[in-house]
Lab assay of single mutants.
Amino acid sequence: DVEPGKFYKGVVTRIEKYGASINLNEQVRGLLRPRDMISLRLENLNVGDEIIVQAIDVRPEKREIDFKYIP
């Protein structure tokens, strides 16, 4: 289970102007929005990149997770 405040290694699977889709595994994925990137710009991400993200909002009833990137 993903817990708010914990850090996870994820893989960038899609990049859109509203954010990047991050997969932690086949069943768990979430969104990294541009506003939640401290020192990383969306255009510097590539599909397949592995990054460390922090879960900031977990809504299991909607199967949604928001991530934050902290270098």
Rank of each mutant, 00 (worst) to 15 (best):
P60G: 10
I22R: 00
I70Q: 08
E43F: 07
N44H: 14
L32Y: 01
L32N: 01
F7A: 04
G30Q: 02
G5Q: 04
V53R: 00
D1G: 12
R14V: 09
V12W: 02
Q54D: 00
K9A: 08
E64L: 11
L32Q: 02
D49V: 05
V58H: 05
D57K: 14
K68D: 03
G19Y: 13
L31T: 10
M37E: 04
K17W: 15
V2S: 02
G48N: 04
L31G: 03
K68M: 12
R63Q: 14
V12Q: 00
D66G: 08
E3W: 09
I56S: 06
I38D: 12
Y8R: 00
I52D: 02
L31N: 08
E26Q: 12
Q54R: 05
E3S: 10
Q54T: 06
G10E: 01
D1P: 11
N46C: 14
D36I: 05
N44P: 02
E43P: 04
I52C: 14
S21A: 11
I15M: 03
L31E: 04
D36V: 03
D57L: 12
E26S: 14
A55V: 15
F7G: 01
V47H: 01
K9Q: 07
S21P: 01
F7V: 05
P71F: 07
P4M: 13
V58T: 07
D1Q: 13
V28Y: 11
S39L: 11
G10L: 09
R63D: 11
P34C: 09
V2L: 09
V11D: 01
V28S: 05
N46P: 00
S39R: 12
F7K: 05
K17I: 13
G10M: 07
E64D: 06
E61G: 13
I51T: 00
I15L: 07
R14I: 07
N25I: 07
E16A: 12
A20W: 06
R63W: 10
G30C: 11
E26R: 11
R29D: 09
I70R: 06
I70S: 09
D57G: 15
I38Y: 09
I51S: 00
G10Q: 01
K9D: 02
P4Q: 10
L42Q: 03
R14K: 13
E3K: 13
L45Q: 00
P4W: 07
